[in-house]
Amino acid sequence: MGKYILKRVGYMVLTMFIIATATFFLMKLMPGSPYANQAKMTTEQINIMNHQYGLDKPAYQQYWIYLVGLLHGDFGTSFQFNNQPVSYLIASRIGPSMQIGVQAIILGTLLGILLGAIAAIRKNTWVDTVATFFAIIGRSIPNFVFAVLLQFFLAFKLRIFPIALWEGFSSSILPTIALAMAPLATTARFMRTEMVDVLNSDYIELARAKGNTPWQTVAKHALRNSLIPVVTIIGPMAVDLMVGSMVVENIFSIPGIGDQFVKSITTNDYPTIMGLTLLYSFMLVVVILIVDILYGLIDPRIRLSGSEGSN
């Protein structure tokens, strides 16, 4: 296991290096000016600015400086937003994003597991139909549409929740629900398929033959066996969450990194875009690694075979 993890971490570093390089050179190719009011600036002023940001150096030197900076946690300086260091910008904004992200993934997976399990246990009944219908809705309606609908009815019409401000837990509820829809639908659907499979298996029949009640059978045997593969979809769900957070934070005016990313795009703030791209990729790579390790730990068939079992 240790050797396997080490190997995976190695690949992770390589992946991050390739991503950093690709992002850097892509940014070099980007059209548009980094300076919002370039039209009004003199050539001299532009030169001064370029020098200040190190943009007058040859590309390979900029690349080197950039890489060295990354190792020190320095993502460069934002062209916009009062010329703050990108790392500072990210640090000050990651809290709200993490909060709604974590809340959404907990809410989504727990409800999804529940919904999927019930649908599988009551397969081909109205309960199953209703659960499947909700899963389809959750998967089909784009989260920003859902977010706007929630905002309109619960915040604007019924005034149960604040419309768009970031103050305390109550303001995180609607964005959490909007973000949780996609993971909920994905988990419910996946869980149902797995559980139906497991419930048809011979060892479930043996569990019944031992004298377990239907609920004991589910609790002791079916649930654990269907939950193990569910771990594997956490990775894709994390991606959905990152994507979703960009619009949801925007709609609910949450000062998070998703909102920052959208703003940086519209202002051509390349250092911030680069920093956030790396951050998103890093988070994703880490999540995938953790999921793989977790999967190996909870499934005895992989844990005990020792070598690399998951892929």
Binding site: S201, D202, Y203, L206, K220, R224, N225, D299, P300
Partner: peptide
């Protein structure tokens, strides 16, 4: 091969 719970 299939009658035993693989995770217990």
């Amino acid at each position: 091969m299939t009658s035993l719970d693989p995770t217990m």
